[in-house]
């Protein structure tokens, strides 16, 4: 499980490869916060290569969303598979995040 970060235009794109769970959530949080500190404002987290997410992974997404907003930035999520969609619907987090079906749509939505 790992996270890769790259810049597409003005957007920082994070790919979550594998699981986002209690054992690695801090790594994701730190990577995004480092970019935020560098002055980046637009963030997209892409879940096309993600397995499952536990409650602490969801908690980190909520936390990052708040911190990015506080800095005047925006966060989008993209490419949730059916199981991840179900997870977001169960927790009603689909109402909290802006979620796009594809990376391209998410990038266009900024």
């Amino acid at each position: 499980m790992s996270f890769s970060i790259k810049k597409e235009g003005e957007v920082v794109v994070v790919d979550v490869e594998g699981q986002l769970i209690v054992g690695n959530r801090q790594e994701l949080k730190q990577k995004v916060l480092d970019e935020l500190e560098r002055g980046e404002k637009k963030f997209l987290i892409d879940f096309s290569q993600t397995g499952y997410i536990d409650s602490s992974g969801l908690g980190v997404l909520v936390s990052l969303s708040k911190k990015i907003r506080e800095q005047g930035g925006e966060l989008r999520l993209a490419n949730l598979n059916d199981d991840l969609k179900t997870l977001f619907e169960l927790t009603k987090l689909d109402t909290l995040f802006q979620i796009a079906d594809t990376r391209e749509r998410a990038l266009q939505s900024f």
Binding site: D54, S55, S56, L58, G59, V60, V62, S63, K66, L87, L90, T91, K92, L93, T95, L96
Partner: peptide, 22 residues
């Protein structure tokens, strides 16, 4: 209930809820 509007932005409190839901 972690799904109510006042709790939705909390970082924690979803673990047992998810176990029971799933």
């Amino acid at each position: 209930d972690p799904t109510t509007p006042e709790n939705l932005q909390r970082e924690d409190g979803r673990g047992l809820f998810l176990m029971r839901a799933l």
